[in-house]
């Protein structure tokens, strides 16, 4: 009986998280604020880099570092919107009444993950094409982007929840998120370098494991700690 209740509880959480995700998605497509912010930021930096370096001048080391720096700072420009919006529109209190904190966090996390995937889907092929970046192991790059996105979105979402409650929202987000998410950046760059070399120069499995483990740790910590921020 108890396990049945637990199952139902989990199902309920999942459904509510999905509903919140759907609500955010609909709201996002009305204004496209976060998507525009991230995508345009990525595009502008991409073209600035391409313009400054030229097509054939950069080595794959520099190219893989630049790819992740573009993705990282682009995501920093938009991920915080998800919670800041609720505070600015004063809808946070209503949200508190209709859903549990875990559901809210999961819904917002899924939204941020989807948002990042959409941006990556546009920006990464564009980057590869424009910068003349030869990728030998596409699956490896895809795995790095997949796990990296989970980590970035997980850390970004919990830090967004923190800064939405503070006074200096814009400036603080990057300051707080950057050091926490640096393992993703460092490991992601390293895997991408590996993917851009014909012969793998180090074992990529341990790096992917570390990316995956980081995502799990940061998302778990986020779910556990979100209660305390949200009800503040």
């Amino acid at each position: 009986m108890e396990s049945l209740n637990q199952k139902q509880g989990l199902l309920q959480t999942g459904t509510n998280a999905y509903l919140i995700f759907k609500k955010d998605l609909l709201q996002e497509f009305k204004t496209r604020y976060a998507l525009n912010a991230i995508f345009l930021f990525a595009l502008v930096t991409l073209f600035a880099v391409s313009f400054a370096i030229g097509t054939f001048n950069a080595s794959s080391d520099i190219l893989s570092a630049l790819l992740w720096i573009i993705l990282f700072f682009a995501s920093m420009s938009g991920l915080s919107h998800i919670f800041v919006r609720e505070e600015e529109a004063h809808t946070a209190d209503t949200l508190k009444l209709v859903a549990k904190p875990t559901e809210i966090f999961l819904g917002k996390l899924i939204f941020n993950i989807v948002l990042l995937f959409m941006v990556e889907l546009l920006v990464v092929p564009l980057y590869v094409a424009i910068m003349n970046f030869t990728i030998y192991h596409i699956l490896l790059l895809a795995a790095a982007l997949l796990f990296g996105t989970f980590g970035l979105a997980g850390g970004g979402t919990i830090v967004a929840a923190i800064i939405a409650k503070s006074n200096a929202r814009g400036a603080l987000f990057t300051v707080l998120a950057f050091p926490i998410l640096l393992p993703v950046l460092v490991t992601g760059i390293s895997v991408t370098k590996n993917a851009a070399t014909e012969k793998l120069f180090s074992n990529p499995v341990s790096e992917l494991q570390s990316l995956f483990a980081f995502a799990i740790v940061i998302i778990t910590a986020g779910i556990l700690l979100f209660d305390f921020i949200w009800n503040e």
């Binding site: 923190i162 640096l182 393992p183 490991t187 570390s210 980081f214 740790v217 700690l225």
Partner: peptide, 26 residues
């Protein structure tokens, strides 16, 4: 106090990655 406490815990769970995991991989 609560925001700082939450950030402190998040920071502390990511510390092992810096101190133990990243130097092991590279």
């Amino acid at each position: 106090a609560s925001l700082a406490a939450v950030y402190d815990i998040i920071a502390f769970v990511t510390v092992p990655f810096f101190v133990f995991i990243v130097p092991r991989i590279y």
